[in-house]
Design a protein around this nucleic acid. Structure first.
Lengths: 247, 247
DNA sequence: CCAAAAGTGTTTCTCATACACCCATGT
DNA sequence: ACATGGGTGTATGAGAAACACTTTTGG
């Protein structure tokens, strides 16, 4: 991280990574954006966290570095999901200007590799790092005019997230704290698939999944019947999965 | 294509596309490889068809260009499925040597965007184009030591192809001629999913799919009961799909 | 006792699977 | 007539979906 300021000559100034970090805040699916320093007109201006890669740096490593710089969390589960390389993606003069200000590099074209990662939004997460500020935006009010093609990247990331959940259901638990209620889990599915789910069927389904463990712990201080807590058991999950994936 | 020889200065020498073109030959899933001209020791040496991108060229356009140069087919359906950017992927001295011979460029590192495409293998396909020769390799005997990380790219492409078929079943028909028998279709599924499928259940399933149309045409000159031909109806497919995808 | 959310069972339908024999054609 | 592969129907089980009321708790 210090290395970045000191050794810009080590940057490989043709390829970048951008990270779409998704989280759940109460009932809403959110994206983390960072305020971009050195915006042309000084206005508040957000973008996806991202970085050029270093000369000898792997793509996955670069994405992990960006996430660590942004959130302070190391070794998050992340997934490269697509690259964006239209020659016109750096065509906006304001974006070009920013690249020159921020990176002191004269750049013609950047191909970016987009990564997806999921996490729990902690209230306190003022989030360490090199950015002026970071902010969670509910997906329905993301600024419409993000720099480069970041709006498009987020669109694609949302689609990819749905596919990811289908192919590996355990990742939804990345959104949740260690213990969670049936309601929380159900809401996540409802938002992801954009449809109401039947409460009874949902409970029944949870019961059949051996890796969702009911705890003898309940909500406290709620003005209605307290909800049970559950936790996700990774070991049981892997057992159940491998039993099914015979082919 | 002529442009390429004339204007190497227009190449953007940091990003390439590589295409994994899959096809079915009789009963076997095959990958198309091209003979690489200018191999260090003159030995026969295959690789995935690929190219650096041009300065002002979109990634998808570059991939389409590569496929057109390789097969003569324009506007194939293709899918960007992953990028490969390990700094060590160009570490093999023989590969570096070849890059310099073939491209007259001194290249440090190349990030490549991998594309997947499916097609029917025509017997006659000597395949037009800039390559010395092209050859279909059954996946079980692909040369073990393809240059760069091409072996790994093919592995990933096969996984991606399976996911693709699941998310959009119509693409299996890219493997087939306009009219095909139930046997041909079934064999493709058997190879893709690597398990035998029950003949009766398969027929039943085909009947429920409104977009697989039985024709009043049958095989000729076969020494057993002639098989019926079917065709794929794109319009009906889109109707049936959109009815299901309400959300 | 009321408001507010948690939790629980049964029925129905659809879809995947398992399984064995007759049919058409060429030699 | 026989060898070769093409084509057909039925029965079972698992899982998804539809549907309404009782329970718990705080105020």
């Amino acid at each position: 991280m210090k290395a970045q300021e000191e050794n810009t000559e080590m940057l490989y100034s043709h390829v970048s990574v951008d990270c779409v970090l998704l989280g759940f805040d109460e009932d809403k699916l959110c994206v983390l954006l960072v305020e971009r320093a050195g915006a042309p007109d000084g206005s508040t201006d957000f973008k996806l966290p991202g970085s050029l890669i270093y000369e000898h740096e792997d793509l996955d490593t670069a994405a992990n570095r960006v996430l660590a710089e942004t959130t302070g969390i190391k070794r998050m589960r992340l997934k490269q999901f697509r690259s964006f390389g239209s020659p016109t993606r750096t065509a906006n003069p304001a974006d070009m200007q920013w690249l020159q200000n921020a990176l002191k590099l004269n750049i013609r074209r950047i191909v970016t590799i987009a990564y997806l990662s999921l996490c729990k939004i902690y209230k306190k997460s003022s989030l360490a790092g090199r950015y002026k500020s970071t902010k969670w935006f509910p997906i329905e009010n993301i600024p419409r005019n993000l720099p480069f093609d970041h709006n498009q990247i987020i669109e694609e990331a949302l689609k990819e997230m749905r596919r990811w959940v289908e192919s590996e259901p355990s990742i939804v638990f990345e959104f949740l704290p260690l213990r969670f209620t049936a309601y929380q889990l159900r809401r996540i599915y409802e938002v992801i698939y954009n449809r109401k789910m039947d409460v009874r069927n949902f409970h029944k389904k949870m019961n059949t999944l051996s890796y969702i463990i009911p705890l003898d712990e309940w909500e406290e201080d709620v003005s209605h019947r307290a909800a049970r807590y559950y936790r996700f058991d990774k070991v049981k999950y892997n057992q159940q999965r491998s039993r099914f994936n015979k082919n």
